[in-house]
Write a protein that binds this DNA or RNA. Structure first.
Lengths: 236, 236
DNA sequence: GTCTATAGGCGGATAGAC
DNA sequence: GTCTATCCGCCTATAGAC
C-alpha cells in the first residue's frame, strides 16, 4: 500500500516536473502570454486533457512557474549571501546583487515572467508572496546587520516623505531607521532596473563591459543605502 | 487630381490612425504578444485582409506602435523639460523623471511595450532607435548644461571601469567626463527601474505615497550623476 | 490518469474578384 | 482598397469510455 502510494506520488511529482520543464522551454519561445497547455502536452507526447489532472488551468501552471522562478532566484541570492558570510555588509550587498544579475542573465524568460510586463488577464495569487519576498528580505537583513554593527550611515530624507517612510519601516523593518528602509526600497527597485535593462537588451550597443558596469552601480546602490563601512571579515 | 490625391492620402492617414488606436486598445486587453490583426479588423468593422494594405504584417503594426509610444513618451519628457527651462539642472532632471513616471502611469500598456519584456519572436528594427533615444538625450543634455555651467560634481569611478567609461563617453557624449556619462547610464536604468516597479505593481502594499517616494528617489539619482548645485533660474 | 472526440472558438496570411 | 473564400493552423476546456 505505502509502496504503491509512494510510487504513485513519485510518478506524479516526476510528471509535474516534466510539465513545468517543458512549460519553461515554451516560455522562452512564446512568452508567458502565449503559454499553451496543448503545446506542452504535444511536446511531452501527452494529450492535452491529461494535463488538467496536474494543473486545473493554464493560470495554475503559470502560478507554479512564477513561484518556482522566485524561489530559484531567491535561492541563488541566498546562496551567494551565505558564501559571503564573513565579509562586510557592502561586500555582501554586492554579492547578492551580482547573484540576482547572474540568475537573470541565465534565466531571462523566467526573469521576464516575474519582473517583466504583467501577463494580461492574469493576477498572481497571494501564494506567490513568500517566494517573491526572499531577495528583499535578504537585502533588509544586510542593512540590519550593518545597523546593529554601527556600520550604517543614515541617508537623508525630505520632510515630505517622513510619514511614508515611517509607514514603510513599520511594515518592513520596524527595527531600522525609516530613512534606511526608504533607501532600501528605492535601491531594490533600482537594482532590478539595472538588471532588467541588461536582460531585456536596452544596453545593447551601449554598455559593453556590463559586468564591471553593474558591479560599480551595485556598489553605488549600497552606498545610497548607507552601507559605507566595508568591514573586512576573517580572511577569505 | 491633387484634391483627389489629398483626399485619399487623408483617408489613408485616418484609417491608419484608427487601426493604431484600436491596436493600442488591444494592447491593454491582450498584451503585445497576442496582438492580432484579425481582432483589430473585427473591432473596426473591417475584414482582416484589408488591414494588410496598411500594415504588411503584424510585426509592422507592432513597430509602428513602439515608435509611437517612444515618441509619445519622448514628447512628454521634452515638454516637461521645456517648461522647466528656467530652473537649474537638478530641477530639470527631476521634471523629466516625473514626466516619464506620469506618462508611464497614464500609458501602462505602452510602457510595457517599450520597457517591459521583449515580445518573443519580434526584434525591433533600427527604425525605432531615434524615438527610443529621446529621453536619454534629454538627460545627457541636462548634464551637459550643468557641466558647461560648472554646476556638475564629478562622480568617482573605479579603475576597472575606466576603459568602458571612456568608450561609452566617446559614443554618447564625448564632451562630458567619462565618470558623468557612466553615472548617467546607470541613473537612466535606475529611473526605469523605479518607474517599472510602480507601473507593474511591485510597489503594491509596499509603497503608498508613490509620488513623494519617486520625487525623492529621482532627486537622489540626480545627485548620483553630479547635479548637485541647484541653480535657481529666473523667478517662476 | 489517460484516451478519443467534440464544442466552439481563435490566429496569420494569400488569391482573386470587384 | 475592400471584399469573399480559403488554406492551414492554433487554443481552452469538457464529456465519457477505459
Amino acid at each position: 500500500m505505502t509502496t504503491a502510494h509512494g510510487a504513485r506520488a513519485r510518478a506524479r511529482i516526476e510528471v509535474t516536473a516534466a510539465i513545468k520543464d517543458e512549460a519553461r522551454r515554451q516560455l522562452a519561445a512564446e512568452g508567458a502570454a502565449r503559454l499553451s497547455l496543448r503545446a506542452v502536452a504535444r511536446e511531452l507526447g501527452m494529450v492535452s486533457s491529461a494535463l488538467y489532472r496536474y494543473f486545473p488551468s493554464r493560470d495554475d501552471l503559470l502560478t507554479a512557474l512564477i513561484i518556482d522562478a522566485y524561489d530559484s532566484l531567491g535561492g541563488s541570492a541566498e546562496a551567494a549571501h551565505a558564501e559571503a558570510a564573513g565579509a562586510g555588509p557592502a561586500q555582501r550587498w554586492t554579492a547578492v546583487c551580482e547573484a540576482v544579475r547572474e540568475w537573470a542573465l541565465a534565466h531571462p524568460h523566467e526573469y521576464a515572467l516575474i519582473y517583466g510586463s504583467p501577463v494580461p488577464g492574469y493576477t498572481a495569487p497571494q501564494a506567490t508572496v513568500p517566494a517573491a519576498s526572499r531577495v528583499g528580505l535578504l537585502l533588509i537583513g544586510i542593512a540590519r546587520d550593518a545597523y546593529r554593527g554601527l556600520g550604517l550611515a543614515r541617508p537623508t530624507l525630505p520632510g515630505e516623505l517622513r510619514p511614508e517612510a515611517e509607514r514603510m519601516a513599520a511594515d518592513l523593518a520596524p527595527d531600522l531607521p525609516p530613512e534606511t528602509v526608504t533607501a532600501l526600497v528605492a535601491a531594490w527597485a533600482q537594482l532590478f532596473g539595472l538588471v532588467g535593462f541588461e536582460v531585456f537588451g536596452q544596453f545593447n550597443r551601449l554598455v559593453e563591459d556590463r559586468a564591471a558596469f553593474f558591479r560599480h552601480a551595485a556598489g553605488q546602490l549600497a552606498q545610497g543605502v548607507g552601507l559605507v563601512y566595508p568591514q573586512r571579515g576573517p580572511a577569505a
